[in-house]
Amino acid sequence: MDLEKHPQKPVVSAEPAGIRASDADRDRIADILREALAEGRLDAEEHAERIDSVYRAKTVGELEPLVRDLPAAGDGARPVGAAAASPAASAASSRGYGYGPEGPATAAENLVAVFSSSTRKGRWRVGGRTNAFALFGNVEIDLTEALFGQRTSVINATSIFGNVEVRVPENISLRGNGAGVFGNFEVVTLEAPDGEAPVVVVNGFSVFGNVEAKPKRGKRIADLHDRLRKHLG
């Protein structure tokens, strides 16, 4: 390929490597990693490791190596002979889970409990990134009736003498990466049989506390969205 005719698109900000990374910089890298996971360029473990590094990165220079071996979002090459999916087919595939079209990166949702409790449950649209922080408190995130605005959602959970609980439907993919210091960090890993099902990644740590993510028995996301389609159709 003639690189002069087909220059590679920059995947991070053109700012110097030492410049502090913004939320938009991190979200842009997360989008590239999400697409790489969907295309099979990264496996689940590699994706989880890189996503964890994305949201721990302080500078632009720390972000660039995470996608150096990947094409920019939207530039992934299809296998030779593979036909591009029609817009109607893509819409039909994503509509079952309520995914919306990719839009500009939005700010993360923050759930904070300091000597208190914070709960997010019921019918709500999950964004690409949620931050949960518990200090002598309890944060509960229930995704069993949620609508996912994108395929991959990242929850950054921090518990200090507190508790963060994440509950998901039984038939989505659940992954995580974290540690407990005199505490507990536990993610019950799931792999959905449906390749288009949502992926929830829980990253973080606990200090004298608890971070736990696991499926809620009897809750299945497809059941909810089937009912929604019948109601709306």
Rank of each mutant, 00 (worst) to 15 (best):
D194A: 13
V166W: 04
A77K: 13
A83I: 09
D52P: 03
F148S: 02
A88E: 14
D75I: 09
D2F: 03
G74P: 12
F161L: 11
A14W: 08
P16Y: 04
K214L: 07
S153Q: 04
F161N: 03
N210Q: 13
R220I: 03
A21D: 06
A77Q: 15
E15C: 07
P215F: 11
V80A: 15
V154T: 07
L147Y: 03
V200E: 05
D52S: 13
G122F: 07
Y99E: 01
V211M: 01
T144F: 02
E109V: 10
H225N: 15
A48R: 12
A57V: 14
K5A: 11
V154W: 01
A107D: 11
G96L: 14
F205I: 05
L37E: 10
E140R: 03
P87Q: 10
R129M: 00
R125N: 00
F205H: 01
E39Y: 12
A197M: 03
A179Y: 02
P169A: 03
D69F: 11
G180R: 07
E35N: 09
R34T: 11
D226S: 14
G18P: 00
R50H: 05
N138W: 12
D43Q: 09
A85T: 15
D52L: 11
E196L: 08
V166R: 05
I51W: 04
G98D: 03
F205N: 00
A84V: 14
V80N: 14
E62W: 00
A72K: 13
E39R: 10
V211R: 01
S53A: 13
S206A: 15
A77V: 15
E140G: 01
E109I: 09
S90I: 07
V207M: 15
S153A: 06
R175E: 06
R129D: 00
A44D: 12
S53F: 06
L190I: 07
E46M: 08
S90N: 15
